[in-house]
Each structure stands twice: as structure tokens, then as C-alpha cells.
Amino acid sequence: MFEGVKDKDLTREQVIERNLNVVEAHFHNETPESVDKAIALYADDIIWEAPLRGIIMTDPVEIKKNYIGIFKTVKYNKTTALRRFATEEYVFDDQIADVQIVGDQMPNLLFPIGSRCSCRITHVFFMRDGKIRREIAYEGFRPWGGPADLDSIPEGSEVVVYDSEVVGT
């Protein structure tokens, strides 16, 4: 719905709805099997950032390699969606992930293989005409169960469990 339509030709509500749907589709396709569909939602002038790891990318081929590295490094046990909202130009997404570090292909990740971490992942997406033109992923990795593993979780937050077998600490 609204594919190929410019923002200026939609109502404010339609632009916001489309932006939320694009980000949902992007997250849904952040898997090894469908990462190309996630990347297809980027604008031609995409900028992908992970500032807490010092990463900035503008080449979709490099961004895909980065995602493959993430898939080979982080195993998701559980996610908790805290909040997501949008305007005509931005989508904000805030979640917590219970993860295990299973590889070493994520540059500047300061946790060794075998670590279990809680990761507060806050995304800001800059949107234009139904495409993501900038994705900023603030990835706050913390030792699972440690003193900094503390979050205010809104009542009714959606929790998705990916694997009941959790190893590592």
C-alpha cells in the first residue's frame, strides 16, 4: 500500500502509517534468509550507523556484510518491545534483547564469545517516500544480570522468546 507514492501525495496519517509498516517489514526481514528484503527498504543514499561501536556505512553491500556478521555473532534468546512511534520523517523503536555472543564478526563488540548480554537497542530511522534513508542503531550491550541490566519496562510490552535453551553468563 502506498508503494512508490511520494510523501507529499499522502496525508500525514498515511505517511506515518507507511513509515511504521516499512520499519516493521525491515525488522521482520533482518534474518539470514531474507536480509536482502530488509536492505531493499533503504533509500539510494542510505546511511547506516552503530555509533556505540563506531560504525558508519553507506554501501548496501557493506551493510549486508555487516548484517551477516551480526547474525554470526549474536544469538537472540528473547526480545522485549518497549515502544515504537513515528512522525512523517522519523520512526523511533526501543527494545531490549537477551542475547548470547556466539561469534566474533561484529566489529568493536566488547564482549567475548560465550557471554550472555542484555542489549538495549534503540533505533532512529530517518524516512523519505516510504524508504529508510538513515538507520541509527544504539546498541547498549551490558552483562546479563549485572548492575547495569536494569530497564523500566512498560506494562503490556510484547515479549518474543526465540530459544528456551540459554547458555553462558
Results as ranks from 00 to 15, higher is better:
156 G>Y: 08
132 I>D: 03
79 T>G: 01
94 D>C: 09
105 Q>C: 12
81 A>C: 05
71 F>P: 01
126 F>A: 14
121 I>P: 00
70 I>Y: 04
86 A>F: 15
127 M>I: 04
76 Y>V: 15
73 T>L: 02
92 F>T: 05
112 P>H: 10
87 T>D: 11
113 I>H: 02
151 D>G: 04
131 K>F: 09
94 D>P: 01
74 V>Y: 06
79 T>S: 11
144 W>Y: 14
132 I>M: 10
113 I>K: 05
74 V>D: 06
80 T>A: 03
114 G>L: 02
155 E>K: 13
136 I>F: 05
102 V>S: 03
130 G>D: 05
124 V>K: 15
130 G>S: 07
64 K>R: 14
85 F>C: 05
67 Y>K: 08
78 K>Q: 09
107 P>F: 04
113 I>Y: 02
68 I>F: 02
132 I>L: 10
116 R>H: 09
113 I>V: 11
150 L>Q: 12
107 P>H: 11
104 D>V: 00
154 P>K: 13
151 D>W: 11
156 G>P: 01
102 V>H: 03
137 A>E: 15
74 V>G: 02
107 P>E: 05
142 R>P: 00
109 L>T: 07
102 V>R: 04
108 N>L: 04
136 I>S: 12
151 D>T: 14
133 R>M: 13
66 N>Q: 09
84 R>Q: 12
135 E>Q: 08
133 R>Q: 15
112 P>W: 04
121 I>H: 02
105 Q>E: 15
116 R>G: 02
149 D>K: 12
108 N>E: 11
155 E>V: 06
85 F>Q: 08
87 T>G: 14
127 M>C: 05
74 V>W: 07
78 K>W: 03
107 P>D: 08
76 Y>L: 13
111 F>R: 09
135 E>K: 09
136 I>A: 14
64 K>N: 03
103 G>I: 03
145 G>A: 15
138 Y>G: 03
130 G>T: 12
145 G>K: 11
144 W>M: 07
156 G>E: 10
112 P>R: 13
82 L>N: 08
104 D>Y: 06
122 T>D: 07
150 L>G: 07
121 I>N: 10
107 P>K: 10
137 A>G: 13
130 G>P: 04
90 Y>G: 03
148 A>T: 15
81 A>K: 07
141 F>E: 02
124 V>M: 13
84 R>L: 06
81 A>W: 07
84 R>S: 10
103 G>L: 03
134 R>Q: 13
136 I>M: 14
116 R>V: 06
67 Y>P: 00
116 R>L: 04
153 I>M: 12
63 I>H: 07
75 K>L: 08
80 T>S: 03
75 K>P: 00
124 V>S: 08
62 E>C: 01
105 Q>F: 03
104 D>Q: 12
79 T>P: 00
146 G>E: 14
77 N>R: 04
110 L>R: 14
99 V>L: 07
86 A>I: 08
101 I>Y: 11
73 T>G: 02
104 D>T: 05
110 L>M: 10
96 I>C: 05
